[in-house]
Nucleic acid binder design. Sequence first.
DNA 1: TGTATTTTATTACATGTGTATTATAACCAA
DNA 2: TTGGTTATAATACACATGTAATAAAATACA
Lengths: 202, 202
Amino acid sequence: MPKVIDEEKRRERIAEAVWNIAAEQGLDHATIRAVAAECDLSVGSIQHSFRTQEELKCFAMELVVQRVITRLNAPRELPNHESDKTIAIAELLMETLPLDAEREKEARIWASFSTAALTDEKLGAYSRQMNDALERFCLECMRELNAPKASEEDSDIRLEATHLHCLLDGLTLALLIDPSTKRRQEVERIVRDFIEQCARGV
Amino acid sequence: MPKVIDEEKRRERIAEAVWNIAAEQGLDHATIRAVAAECDLSVGSIQHSFRTQEELKCFAMELVVQRVITRLNAPRELPNHESDKTIAIAELLMETLPLDAEREKEARIWASFSTAALTDEKLGAYSRQMNDALERFCLECMRELNAPKASEEDSDIRLEATHLHCLLDGLTLALLIDPSTKRRQEVERIVRDFIEQCARGV
DNA sequence: TGTATTTTATTACATGTGTATTATAACCAA
DNA sequence: TTGGTTATAATACACATGTAATAAAATACA
């Protein structure tokens, strides 16, 4: 019998090396050799886990989507008190933004993959999956905000969820381009104001 | 005396070839040879106009910024009547979105360049220039909307302009990922609602 | 027309890249 | 220990790429 390794863990370790390179140098720098060096493996070992580079890139992107979706679906409990809940939701949403170094790295990873997905049909599906998940998450948040009133049409809430979702994407981009403290404060203020406005049901 | 060509036009023609490839296959596919083929020139001609590939990419990105800024700064006249003006501004803003094939291509070009700018310091400056220009444009729009009231603080208007700007970026991304008619209609509705809300000064 | 000068085209070359191949090393069961 | 199986490593190879070098063509003025 051969040496036995946890093949799934190995694949994830390699995928994370792709992430690092994508965040720091762009996805196109994630060559087999660069990835091998990044995760301290030989080219042969990478090839053992992934037959082709395309397979590796797909897996690396799929894993991003998986992890983010898992996090978005994590069980949460929101405060009962209405104004506390509003604040909690705003903070929940801000956790998706690159307001600290770790999230910034994630956002850079995602930016490189989703741009690649625009011209790579194989990756496009993951892009759409992520989009759907974020939209659902925003929709849940909006439902929570509107729950006590139940005054709005469902289609209106869906539209506001899409608005929120796109706003978050745009804020993410803005923070990647300008991660200054000033910008971060503006972004936090925008999210809070928007959520409060939604809660007031304007 | 040598053959005389319009060197500036030539450079722009080459840059536009880079754009085409970036939109269709991604910026990393814009190799010297691919660009030469795209604009029906030899590799030597490209080299005559651009010493290195880096120089070419910078020029190509700079030209995008230049053209967009020129368009944003184009003189416009808005209707005097208030509600007409609101509608006009909404339509003005929607012209920046990839709601038709031509704008979609532009957005894809910009997406590939701005993502590359995240990991390429040389390109980062253009990214920030474009951002500033869009933000100024949004600010002008917000000022127009708020002109008749003059009730808001300037800092609030600036924040709303940033909100608008980020929203537009996010909507652009959403349309690139899903350019369906349904999505387009949602996007148009979101812009109109948001602008109306701003006009009402909520 | 001839020629100087620049544009264009071709080629060459070093390096990077994906991947197949091969050889070695590591491991578990008998 | 030994044998068989698999993981790892190293190498080979065809091809793409950026760029330099060189040759050829084209043009405006004398």
